[in-house]
């Protein structure tokens, strides 16, 4: 059932919207093309932001900093019940979507998807976003320079969620 919903959702949503609009007498294709034109411009506006973010993330990933920080942080974090194995994920998740997904795919095979660690990592992945990709892209698209407290509030929310996932999976 879950697989069906997940697989059908994109086509299903388009189907419902287009059929409903057509029956209401909307010139559906004309409306679609008109809207799609705006999409091109918005995507091009985002390109420079994307290049900047991915460049910084790639330097960080290739430098080996995550390994060094994991070594430094795993001791103190284990005192508050955070397993050392989850530390690289906690460090990577808000920065790099592709790196955290790669790490997740690797770790879940090592620990087993139904083990405590496997569940905790799955929950972290399923309930968090790449904060430092989303914010620059969204704000960059509208030329906002001063994002005020957006990054701080988002990172607080993201880390609260990730730590909560680690504790919740221990109980559930």
């Amino acid at each position: 059932m879950v697989d069906f919903i997940a697989g059908f959702s994109v086509a299903g949503v388009i189907f419902i919207i287009v059929i409903y609009a057509y029956l209401k007498g909307v010139p559906v294709f004309d409306a679609f093309v008109e809207g799609a034109k705006e999409g091109v411009k918005a995507a091009i506006d985002v390109l420079p932001v994307m290049v900047g973010i991915l460049a910084a993330v790639s330097i960080l990933n290739a430098s080996g900093l995550v390994d060094i920080l994991t070594g430094l942080l795993k001791g103190p974090l284990s005192l508050i019940g955070i397993p050392a194995e989850t530390v690289p994920m906690l460090l990577l998740r808000p920065f790099s979507g592709s790196a955290s997904l790669g790490l997740f795919t690797e770790q879940i095979k090592t620990f087993g998807p139904d083990s405590y660690l496997g569940k905790a990592l799955s929950t972290i992945m399923g309930s968090s976003e790449t904060v430092l990709y989303i914010l620059p892209v969204y704000f960059g698209a509208v030329n906002v320079k001063n994002t005020r407290h957006a990054a701080a509030a988002s990172l607080i929310a993201s880390y609260t969620g990730m730590l909560a996932a680690i504790y919740i999976c221990r109980i559930l």
Partner: peptide, 13 residues
């Protein structure tokens, strides 16, 4: 393009 297009269709309906 796909989603801003579909969005416009939904808007007009």
């Amino acid at each position: 393009c796909l989603w801003t297009g579909v969005m416009r269709v939904a808007q007009k309906a």
